[in-house]
Design a protein around this nucleic acid. Structure first.
Length: 439
RNA sequence: GCCGGGGUGGGGUAGUGGAUAUCCUUGGGGACUGUGGAUCCCCGGACCCGGGUUCAAUUCCCGGACCCGGCCCCA
């Protein structure tokens, strides 16, 4: 009778095995490189913050969905549920920073919610923000970065970015006699989930008559090219509406210069009831199958809420969960080594020293170079090499050691070549890895 | 927090109120003794947990945790 102890994962948390971690790493790599290509700098911050940091901004509602506890020193703390407050805390703590500031980060964030498709209690979230610039160009750069990342992952034309403007929506609502804009935002945010009657009755509760509600309903039901916003907002003309439309169109134009996929205006994008004050946006898969891949917007009031400084800001966050679902569907969930990989076989113990020296030479110009640890027969070692999906085997034995050479075997074609020890590094640089490799 | 669905080795499965729980795959070891995912041999590994019904539960019933999906919410 065997007695085994098995440990379960905590609900809603994930393990990441290599076959999944490799493509996940690729997402982060593309995101980080895209950000850095625009001059963004990486920052990091604790996984634990005072709960008050979130109370300020979001009230008790969000607080109820956090992993919070009182630590041994009596501090009320929480596993961070988002990055933005921490980043704003960092920004406001340093008055010497030259603005505009472009920062990105890649924390794990936590939320105590029921797990669902594309939602876990812990996930990675790439974040990028620009502080100290309230221009539409800053808006465009953030939205453009979001698109660049998706493009870089091979998802061009498989996603679309939908943008909206909170002040635009607010102007529209004001112009139709809405007495409770936040409530109306809430209804618009949920409009795809509620039926028509519910929409009408809730809108009427905010003071909008049914004729105007009809117009609103039609307006938020469609997504349009930025150039055609006025086609759907025609019934709500006013100077403030007009100014907001122009800004949104300008942003849309700039973004379209940066990315490969369409930018559409979707007047139903509200982004919850959070702290957004300007442009808001989300990226969706074109099939509309999943929840938003990423989302963000302008939040000019947050720094003032948290400090004595008034710093305009715009940013976005992208979790790793939804994009994983999408990449799997699109056949992009795999990883290919950029450099060829090697397995250094050694046929006899006496040549191990030489084999290790050869390994070092190979590594100097190549990718992963695996030393054999099994000390088994050559055929077994070659089998291991194949199992590791290496591109080449480097065979070392009595003959190679005597002649100061190494035998390179291409594990795909079977071709072999003997290379002098001194020329190994150079030879490796001429080799290519195979580009398939399944996840 | 609520609702629906689900569970047999690591993965995929067969099956059953009773006997050593099926098959494939994967994993480990060995043979082939300097050229590979082959072949052959050997080995390891499972009925989610707890209670109940029963002579007997992996099987039926209840509860819990977990997984999948949804609601709420959405950083």
């Amino acid at each position: 009778m065997r007695r085994t102890m098995t440990f379960e994962r905590v609900r809603g948390f994930r393990d990441h095995y290599p076959e999944d971690m490799m493509p996940r790493k690729k997402i982060f790599k593309v995101a980080e490189e895209s950000a850095e290509s625009l001059g963004f700098k990486k920052v990091d911050f604790p996984s634990l913050e005072y709960l008050d940091l979130y109370r300020l901004k979001s009230g008790e509602e969000l607080v109820g969905q956090t992993f919070s506890f009182v630590d041994k020193g009596g501090r009320e703390v929480t596993m961070i549920p988002e990055a933005t407050p921490s980043v704003v805390r960092m920004i406001t703590a340093r008055k010497d920073l030259i603005k505009p500031i472009r920062w990105y980060s890649l924390p794990k964030i936590f939320r105590y919610e029921e797990p669902q498709a594309g939602r876990y209690r812990e996930h990675y979230q790439f974040n990028a923000d620009i502080f100290g610039a309230d221009s539409p160009e800053a808006d465009a750069e953030i939205i453009g970065l979001a698109g660049m990342i998706l493009d870089g992952l091979g998802l061009a034309s498989r996603y679309e970015i939908r943008i909206n403007s909170r002040p635009l929506l607010e102007s529209i609502l004001n112009s139709v006699g809405c007495r409770n804009v936040p409530a109306a935002f809430g209804v618009i945010d949920r409009f795809r989930k509620i039926d028509r009657e519910e929409f009408f009755s809730e809108m009427s509760a905010t003071g909008i008559d049914s004729e105007r509600t009809e117009l609103l309903y039609s307006m938020i039901s469609q997504t349009v090219e930025p150039g055609k916003i006025r086609d759907v907002t025609g019934g709500f003309a006013s100077p403030s509406v007009d100014a907001e439309i122009s800004r949104l169109q300008y942003i849309g134009d700039l973004v379209s210069r940066m990315i490969l996929s369409p930018v559409k205006v979707d007047l139903s994008i509200v982004r919850g009831l959070a702290y957004y004050t300007g442009v808001v946006f989300e990226a969706y898969d074109v099939m509309g199958k999943h929840r938003a891949i990423l989302g963000g917007g302008r939040y000019d009031g947050l720094a003032a809420l948290m400090s004595d400084q008034d710093i305009p800001a715009v940013g976005f966050g992208m979790g790793d969960a939804v994009i994983e679902l999408l990449m799997k569907e699109e056949g992009k969930w795999f990883y290919a080594n950029e450099k060829p990989s090697f397995y250094v076989c050694c046929t006899r113990k006496e040549s191990k020293s030489y084999a290790f020296a050869v390994s070092r030479e190979v590594r100097s110009g190549g990718g992963a170079t695996i030393d054999d640890l099994s000390n088994r027969g050559l055929s077994a070692q070659l089998r291991n090499a194949a199992g590791e999906k290496c591109d080449y085997a480097v065979i070392i034995g009595e003959r190679e050691e005597a002649s100061r050479t190494a035998t390179f075997r291409n594990l795909v074609s079977g071709e072999q070549k003997e290379i002098e020890y001194g020329k190994i590094g150079q030879h490796v640089l001429t080799l290519k890895g195979k580009s398939e490799n399944k996840a």
